[in-house]
């Protein structure tokens, strides 16, 4: 399938439109973050006394003594040249910090998103073909439970069951620190650590995709063209997986794209429970320490990612559905 020139133009325009959007987001984030009570300097100084002169010195060094509009102007003029500044706590460039955490989050989220989307679609199709059977009802029950279960609680339950009692999976982090491994061993090690957090991460998304797929597939299977296909003698598997699925899956693509944002937000909890070294944890620690540059950097990165995923979703839509016209 080749991309049409109109599509490329469309992508270019969407990217251009995204620039002012990102700036508005930065503006809102800036004021939200600074509206929270508390002070990064208090966190740095810790639980014992420091002299007021020292505190003032730190504040000056970080530019926190300036009025908010001045701080905002400084930030915006830096971010315009893609400089995210220095973390107050780590005294390292924010960009480096985020990049060091990005791969872990992408690995966890990518695995969860791919697995839960595929499994959700397949289960949805299966349920739609045999609606209102006992299996369907059971699947619906499990999906609803998965949809409404808080991530941190589910994570704990999985840990107690599969780590503590069954002893199948490790509980924390990405690597076995007692027996470090290289090459293939390391990949297997990471995969072993990935199972539980990815499972925790997937459940909500899986339930959502499954429910939606089931409904869409049922609707599609009742349409006239499907009846026609069956009447022509097309094998049932082909009817379902080629004729019907292609149409039924369209709204799912939108939901997967939209869900990306929610999953990024959910990463804070999953990564904390499983000590997964990703961006969600960096965000959590940033909030705890009121590390303004890190928070601003993360929010900006996340916003850009969500915007990009939205554009990608629209493009995928066009590839799957040739009727979509971009203007």
């Amino acid at each position: 399938m080749s991309l049409r020139p109109s599509l490329l133009l469309y992508v270019a325009r969407r990217l251009l439109q995204a620039v002012p959007l990102v700036f508005v987001i930065i503006l809102i984030n800036f004021f939200l973050i600074h509206a929270a009570p508390g002070d990064p300097v208090d966190f740095l100084v810790g639980t014992m006394e420091a002299t007021p002169e020292y505190l003032e010195g730190l504040r000056r060094e970080f530019g926190l003594d300036q009025p908010l509009p001045v701080q905002l102007w400084r930030y915006v003029s830096k971010i315009a040249v893609l400089d995210m500044g220095y973390s107050l706590r780590f005294r390292q460039p924010v960009f480096e910090l985020i990049m060091s955490r990005l791969p872990a989050t992408l690995l966890l989220m990518g695995t969860a998103l791919v697995v839960s989307s595929i499994v959700g679609i397949l289960l949805g199709v299966a349920a739609a073909r045999r609606p209102h059977t006992a299996t369907d009802h059971a699947a619906t029950f499990v999906a609803l439970a998965g949809y409404s279960m808080p991530v941190f609680w589910l994570g704990q339950l999985l840990l107690i069951a599969f780590s503590l009692h069954l002893n199948w999976f490790p509980t924390q982090g990405m690597y076995d620190l007692r027996a470090p491994s290289d090459g293939w061993g390391r990949i297997v090690d990471v995969a072993h650590h990935l199972v539980l957090p990815a499972l925790t991460y997937s459940v909500y998304h899986l339930a959502l995709v499954y429910r939606l797929m089931r409904v869409k597939m049922q609707e599609t299977l009742a349409l006239d063209y499907v009846t026609t296909a069956r009447a022509k003698g097309v094998p049932e598997r082909r009817v379902v997986y080629v004729h019907a699925l292609r149409n039924a899956v369209l709204p799912i693509v939108t939901v997967i794209g939209l869900n990306f944002g929610f999953m990024l937000a959910g990463s804070v909890l999953t990564e904390t429970v499983f000590a997964w070294p990703g961006m969600g944890r960096l965000l959590y620690e940033g909030i705890q320490g009121r590390d303004y540059p890190v928070l601003m950097g993360l929010f900006t990165c996340l916003s850009v990612m969500v915007i990009l995923v939205n554009i990608i979703t629209d493009v995928v839509y066009a590839v799957i559905d040739p009727r979509v016209v971009y203007r």
């Binding site: 941190f152 994570g155 924390q172 982090g173 620190l177 904390t272 000590a275 070294p277």
Partner: peptide, 8 residues
């Protein structure tokens, strides 16, 4: 080893 969650 960095482990932020108390119960885990």
């Amino acid at each position: 080893k960095i482990m932020p969650d108390a119960s885990a």
